[in-house]
Amino acid sequence: MQKKLRLIGIIALVLFVLIQLYRPKKNNGAITREHLYKQEQVPAHIQTILNNACMDCHSNHTNYLWYHEIAPVSWLVRYDINEGKGHINFSEWGKLDVFDKIGDLDDLSKAVKSGEMPISMYSMMHKKARLSQAERDTLVAWSARLSESLINRNAGD
């Protein structure tokens, strides 16, 4: 019996070491002029919320924690980043047309209002990402303001 347990332990250990060999590409691009913050005047307190709760998965730059390097966590993290950037990527904001920007802001506000975002797994591991109702309201109001301003700026052409 003990022999069997030891064998299982060794196999698990070997597997754990082996899966470390596959290392997903890091999401650590630089901030370019296309980034939301370079394109729009985003108030500091909004930037704080976005940085704490959104940017890890919705931009080209993730603040990694030490255990994010270890498989299978590293795979999960990469998966979430791909998913997040697929929906909204604030690093590429400048490349969107006005309709896609308003669409993204509409998504943001619905997801933040309903509590769908940030995903529970993320806020479980990131204390600062646990948004209060006030923070959610602030973010939703900001997104509506930005949409209005996008409409006003683009109404002429």
Partner: peptide
């Protein structure tokens, strides 16, 4: 609202 309409139509397009 106009913003919501634009958001909805953007969704439909996608």
């Amino acid at each position: 609202t106009k913003v919501e309409k634009l958001g909805t139509f953007n969704h439909v397009k996608k």
